[in-house]
Computed example of a mutant assay.
Amino acid sequence: MNTRSASHAAQRQLWLAVGFMVASAAMFAAMAVMIRLASAELHAFEIAFFRNFFGLVFAVPLLLRHGTGILKTDKLHLYLGRCLIGILSMLCGFWAIVHLPLAKAVTISYSTPLFVTILAVLFLGEVVRLRRWTAVALGFIGVLVIMRPGADGFDANTFVALAAAVLSAVVAISIKVLSRTEKADAIVLWTTLLWVPMSLVPALFVWAWPSGWTWAWVAAAGFFGTAGHMFWTRALKRGDASMLTPISFMQVPFAAALAWWLFGEGVTAWTALGAGIIFVANAYIAHREAQVASRTVTDAEISPETQKR
């Protein structure tokens, strides 16, 4: 493969990663809407269980396509740790979606990139340059503009949402570690299989059988959650966690628009401004990473020493 072809291949993988992350953001925004709809009848913990149960149902075709051999792994301990942290993050996140305005709950979750960037540098050895640090900081400012902390005060539910964001950052790093040796579909299957029994335990303490349309909402939450997870793992397989996580900020305007349309939750000028800042940050991150990927391939062809940055 010549230098130009290698450069194009690297950029193609990068843009695929970006596209998968955008699709993931749309799926998770739709899942948040389903959670809110189901919360009229069910507790957040029970919704989390049904999201995972139906998510497993929708993941069965993956198992049929690949066969049980895809579940063979020597990383079960990593899956268990990742899933325990993930279920805690999910329970906190679902609680926030139910008890906070939808756009606010989602935007608070996007303090995650700050933690992901730090963890990616410390534990994955990813190189994060000044411009990307600046873009991440800009995206975080956009989240703060939407949140306007202090304007209405932080309550206990806000801290629960923040806890979900911190735990989500740990999950993102664990996914990246697993994706080095594990297939994306294997990660989805193992995660879904483990999440069902893990989420059942807290759900039993608040159990109430759903009825009518609530069954549709929890089933749809499972579908959108599984689809979002599949897109997310494929994105992280192709790109740096610290680069891709800020792109998932697009879930914010998606969720805000759906909340306005379905629940009459207003989209304020602050929300629009914050979303605009986030979009600018995301666009720059994707553009910058495309340049870096192209230059890295070119430098590697010229001299191995240029990779030691």
Rank of each mutant, 00 (worst) to 15 (best):
residue 236 L to C: 07
residue 59 A to C: 04
residue 83 C to G: 12
residue 27 M to N: 02
residue 90 M to Q: 05
residue 152 D to E: 15
residue 180 R to S: 11
residue 290 A to S: 15
residue 297 V to G: 05
residue 295 R to V: 09
residue 308 K to C: 00
residue 20 F to T: 12
residue 92 C to H: 01
residue 184 A to T: 15
residue 251 Q to A: 05
residue 39 S to G: 15
residue 190 W to A: 07
residue 184 A to G: 09
residue 13 Q to V: 08
residue 167 L to S: 07
residue 204 L to F: 08
residue 155 D to W: 04
residue 27 M to C: 13
residue 273 L to N: 03
residue 50 F to P: 06
residue 227 A to E: 08
residue 37 L to V: 12
residue 211 S to R: 13
residue 216 A to G: 14
residue 75 K to V: 07
residue 139 G to W: 05
residue 85 I to L: 14
residue 30 A to M: 11
residue 64 L to R: 14
residue 64 L to C: 08
residue 240 D to R: 12
residue 56 L to S: 11
residue 114 L to Q: 01
residue 128 V to M: 00
residue 289 E to L: 06
residue 32 A to V: 04
residue 215 W to Y: 07
residue 38 A to C: 12
residue 104 K to I: 06
residue 273 L to S: 06
residue 178 L to T: 04
residue 270 W to P: 06
residue 109 S to C: 00
residue 207 W to T: 02
residue 279 F to R: 02
residue 251 Q to G: 03
residue 214 T to K: 03
residue 37 L to N: 07
residue 158 T to F: 04
residue 214 T to L: 08
residue 20 F to Y: 14
residue 31 M to G: 00
residue 51 R to G: 11
residue 264 G to A: 12
residue 142 G to Y: 05
residue 99 H to K: 10
residue 267 V to S: 05
residue 206 V to L: 10
residue 94 F to K: 04
residue 120 A to W: 04
residue 44 A to P: 13
residue 152 D to V: 10
residue 157 N to K: 05
residue 159 F to E: 06
residue 19 G to W: 03
residue 273 L to I: 14
